[in-house]
Structures are given as structure tokens and as C-alpha cells.
């Protein structure tokens, strides 16, 4: 994976593909430029999920987004998982593959949650080496996404944005910036989200997620089950003014509303995107 030029394709404005919307997407022509699939949902041998996926991939560009790579785990990389991921990628031919900067498994058990990493040199070295390994295995750069977090470790000696930036440099990987997650973590850990965005290298930012959450007053739980809030729209506006045009999508994971409602959010992202370019 060494020394190939980074070529950030701009895919436009997309949406996370959800089961509830299959029929509507296939029977209509929704104004969505591309879809992101959750890789694990399609790592099966057959059934409706794959059937619909095969049809949707004929009509829209797709990207693959995983939740279980566990890139920050101290367990060895799960090669069964990576083999399944590679096989799926051969079927889907995604524009790119992403996962999260976190750990999800330990001691052979899965938490099925995006667990935060301590940000220090030891972790940086460990994760960078694993990212390189995965990229060599998949034959392409991967994107890592910043997850929302609720704890900071005493052993961390750098910020998440410093860590992410240096990791991308060290491992030669790309970044999926979740603007909502930056907002949530900023709220929960008392930092200014703009500081995070300012630190990013535009060259490495390949995709943006926009999502909603639940504010509990003292803290925010990142539920991804609400519309994007105004503050996050403003932060998105700031992000693309700072980093330039980036492929963007709306990510809704729970309480899935009718497609039309999400299309309105995609339109809003598009309008902000256009005004800046």
C-alpha cells in the first residue's frame, strides 16, 4: 500500500442503506447519490439481504461500513472476519471500506460496541501496524471513523484528533469523519469540536457522517436515532468550509423513519455542500 497517491473520489450525498427502505429504493428513483451498507449485515450465505443488495448495487455506488473489525483490540486480528469482509467486497465492489477507530472484541468475546482506545504512543504503534496489515490484506486503503466516547483514560497523552491524524499518516489510511460524533464527544469531554476539525488533513478525509442523538443534559448518548440537530448542521458547514468538499451521508441506525424524511436531510446536506463549493 506504499506511496500510491490518495485519490479522494467525491460521491456526492448519500444515505445509510436500511432494510425498511429496500422496496422504495428499488421501485422509485430517490434523489440519493450513493448508499453505505453495514458490512456485517451482508456477511451471510443467502437470503433477502443479499438479494436486495445485488439489485441496489446495480443502480447505485456503494461503500462498505463495518462495526466489528476491532482494529484497536489486543487480540490478534480476526482473519475469519477479514476473509468474510474481503469476500463481500468482491461481491459488492464498494468504492471504499470503512470501520471505526476503537476496539470491539477482547479475549475472543465481542462487546458489539465501539469501545474507546487510550491515545498514546503504544496504542498508536499497535493500531498503525494492524491497519497496515488489513490494508495489505484487502489491497486498498481503509477509512477509520471517529466514534463517540464517554470515557477518557488517565494513560492517554494525546487528544483523539492528534491520535487520528498521526495514525492516518503512520498507517497511510483514510478518515471517515463523523461530525455528529465529534460534537457528542466534545460535549461529553468538554472540548471545542472546531479544534478537532481544524487539526484534520483534508487530503485524508474521504467521507463524512451526519447523524442525530439524544441529549440527557449532563451528557449525550450517541443513539443515531434522531434527526441531525442544528448545532451539528452548523458544524458540518464549518467542516466543509475548513476541509473542502467531502462525500457526505446521513446515518440513521434506529427508529428508522420513512425514506422521504431522510431524503430531506440528504437535501439539506447537499444545499450546505453546494453553498460552499
Amino acid at each position: 500500500m506504499k506511496n500510491t497517491k490518495i485519490d479522494n473520489q467525491f460521491l456526492g450525498f448519500g444515505l445509510g442503506l436500511r432494510t425498511d427502505h429496500y422496496e422504495e429504493i428499488l421501485s422509485g428513483d430517490p434523489p440519493i447519490d450513493w448508499f453505505e451498507i453495514i458490512s456485517e449485515n451482508y456477511m451471510v450465505k443467502g437470503g433477502r439481504q443479499l438479494y436486495h443488495l445485488d439489485r441496489i448495487k446495480e443502480r447505485y455506488p456503494l461503500v462498505m461500513h463495518g462495526v466489528s473489525m476491532s482494529i484497536g483490540s489486543s487480540d490478534p486480528l480476526n482473519m475469519d472476519y477479514l476473509n468474510d469482509l474481503k469476500r463481500l467486497a468482491e461481491r459488492v465492489k464498494p468504492r471504499w471500506i470503512s470501520d471505526h477507530l476503537c476496539w470491539t472484541s477482547h479475549g475472543g468475546h465481542n462487546t458489539h460496541d465501539l469501545m474507546p482506545l487510550p491515545y498514546n504512543q503504544e496504542t498508536l504503534k499497535h493500531v498503525a501496524q494492524r491497519v497496515k496489515h488489513v490494508q495489505d490484506f484487502l489491497g486498498q486503503r481503509i477509512l477509520l471513523e471517529n466514534a463517540s466516547s464517554y470515557v477518557t483514560y488517565k494513560v492517554s497523552d494525546m487528544t483523539e484528533w492528534e491520535f487520528l491524524h498521526h495514525l492516518a499518516e503512520e498507517a497511510d489510511c483514510l478518515i471517515l469523519l463523523d461530525v455528529n460524533n465529534i460534537y457528542v464527544s466534545g460535549y461529553n469531554h468538554d472540548f471545542d469540536p472546531k479544534t478537532y476539525i481544524d487539526y484534520m488533513d483534508p487530503q485524508r478525509i474521504c467521507q463524512i457522517h451526519l447523524a442525530g442523538h439524544e441529549n440527557n443534559g449532563d451528557f449525550i448518548i450517541d443513539t443515531h436515532d434522531h434527526p441531525v440537530i442544528d448545532e451539528v448542521w452548523q458544524l458540518y458547514d464549518y467542516t466543509i468550509r475548513t476541509l473542502g468538499r467531502v462525500t457526505t451521508m446521513i446515518e440513521r441506525d434506529d427508529h428508522i423513519p420513512p425514506l422521504a424524511e431522510l431524503i430531506e436531510e440528504v437535501k439539506r446536506a447537499r444545499a450546505i455542500g453546494k453553498s460552499q463549493c
Binding site: 460496541d113 464517554y150 470515557v151 483514560y153 488517565k154 461529553n188 449532563d218 451528557f219
Partner: peptide, 19 residues
């Protein structure tokens, strides 16, 4: 709990509870 940084609007116990 000893690994978690204190400070902020909620304490380590509540932060862990979220997970």
C-alpha cells in the same frame, strides 16, 4: 474505574454505566 479520568459533568461511575 481507576483508569478513567475524573472531571466533566459526570463521574467515572456514570461514564462506565453508559457502556
Amino acid at each position: 474505574l481507576l483508569e478513567i479520568e475524573e472531571g466533566g459533568k459526570i463521574g467515572p461511575e456514570q461514564r462506565l454505566h453508559i457502556y
